[in-house]
């Protein structure tokens, strides 16, 4: 009777130990696969490269120059098919960042002011269509005026 009780209690003990192990072990195994995510909010810069006709410069090559090193690119990459390119400037290097976009000898350079906390700044190197039209017309009129001036009868 006593031995029967002892074997029962030892069975209970083993069962309890196994149960504890079953509870703890998977938790340990799961911890080994645990991922840790952090986030820091930073402002990225989106470059959209288009020809002045509006056609995106697909797959154009991009070189990003940090302030103070105009010869060595800080980052190089390629625009997507929509002519877009994203990069996050190093907030440790505030100043005038330069982004050069090039495709088949076409391209431009844009300068972006990166302060310690810049959010939502926008800029462009182009003009609107109306500005372009007015400029083109004024130049053409200047040239026609030149032609008229030199074609008047000489006295």
């Amino acid at each position: 009777m006593q031995s029967k009780f002892r074997s029962l209690s030892s069975t209970c003990l083993v069962g309890f130990a196994v149960a504890v192990c079953l509870i703890i072990l998977p938790a340990d195994v799961a911890l080994a696969h645990g991922a840790e995510l952090q986030y820091i909010e930073r402002s990225a810069i989106e470059i959209t490269a288009r020809y002045d006709s509006g056609v995106p410069m697909a797959n154009a090559q991009v070189a990003v120059f940090a302030p103070g090193s105009p010869a060595e690119p800080w980052l190089t990459g390629t625009c997507d098919s929509e002519g877009q390119f994203f990069f996050t400037p190093d907030p440790e290097i505030p100043g005038l960042w330069e982004v050069q976009v090039r495709l088949a000898g076409h391209g431009d350079l844009i300068r972006i002011e990166v302060a310690e906390n810049t959010i939502g700044a926008t800029g462009t190197t182009g003009f609107t269509s109306l500005q372009k039209l007015l400029m083109a017309l004024s130049v053409i009129w200047g040239l026609i005026g030149t032609a008229l001036y030199f074609s008047r009868r000489q006295r």
């Binding site: 130049v139 053409i140 040239l143 026609i144 032609a147 030199f150």
Partner: peptide, 8 residues
């Protein structure tokens, strides 16, 4: 005059 027009 011709040159100016063609420049335009």
């Amino acid at each position: 005059p011709r040159a100016a027009l063609l420049t335009a």
